[in-house]
Write a protein that binds this DNA or RNA. Structure first.
Lengths: 153, 153
DNA sequence: AATAAATTGTCAGTCAATATGACGAAAAGG
DNA sequence: CCTTTTCGTCATATTGACTGACAATTTATT
């Protein structure tokens, strides 16, 4: 009935990146749910990716994640309520609090890294070890170039 | 002060895909704004990517985009209000309406495709023509494998 | 030391982009 | 005809982001 869309022939690079990204994401967060962490959502990775081993300030987390402190506070609140983080006053600065992973939170971080590695291995299974390795390398180079551009500005 | 995050050493493939995707997205939608379409947001691409040359039904669009018809209606309403789409009753089906691109909307679609091509060319400029070509090819193969898996299920 | 400026986190409110559930109107299948 | 399905809409909720304003506190400047 409905004619096919005009954009059928050749997908944009952006569309391909999005497709792959979303597939990996589904695998990782599905796996996390299967391992007993159904409450962890993709947005939470902004916290896990940026928190330091001895804890970090909210402001630091927000800066690293490239978002406002209010948005980061929203994510931290959720994770703290679920027992993945604690937020304690900084003894050296009366304004600040230090956000730390609990043992549970460290479990999530470990699972997150393991599942990401598994997902990457499945990519290798799909297109071949060699190509998957190159895919990663090219993306790393692209990321480095993008970061260099940003730094130069 | 704040120690570096644990995840510094090696980025996950997902993180690399996200980084690249978001960079391309910024380029494309920034370019769209610069060309006089600041109201077009990334979510709208779900409409432009899936609409047929002779128009499509809301339900068809939602199906193709993999979202609910309510969500698609939200996007279509916004684009229609901005003059990029029209929604006319289907003469052959009293329940349905047919969503069509206006001339303005076709301009957006053309700009979207052109800007995506430009963004891909800039990727080639960053990591080299040859690598960019391979990057695309591997992503296409990955996408094909993912779609085959989905179809097999 | 006193004051001015900057930083930290929170409160309040908004918006974008998804989702569910319920439903009337219309079409399709018997 | 009647029943079932499909199409789009209404109402409502959730998630994840944003801006602006602010009190408490620390840091910098006179």
């Amino acid at each position: 009935m409905d004619s096919r869309p005009v954009t059928e022939q050749r997908r944009t690079l952006g569309a391909l990146l999005r497709l792959s990204y979303e597939a990996l994401q589904r695998e990782v967060y599905g796996g996390l749910a299967a391992r007993g962490y159904p409450e962890i959502r993709p947005a939470h990775s902004a916290v896990f990716r940026h928190i330091g081993p001895d804890g970090s300030r909210l402001t630091t987390l927000a800066e690293r994640a490239g978002m406002t402190k209010q948005s980061m506070a929203y994510l931290v609140d959720g994770l703290a309520a679920a027992g993945h983080l604690t937020s304690t006053p900084d003894p050296a600065d009366g304004r600040a609090r230090i956000v730390r992973l609990t043992a549970k939170g460290q479990g999530v971080l470990a699972a997150l890294l393991a599942l990401s590695a598994e997902a990457e291995a499945r990519v290798a299974g799909r297109i071949g070890e060699r190509r998957a390795g190159k895919l990663r390398r090219y993306l790393e180079q692209l990321a480095a170039a993008l970061e260099a551009e940003r730094a130069a500005r």
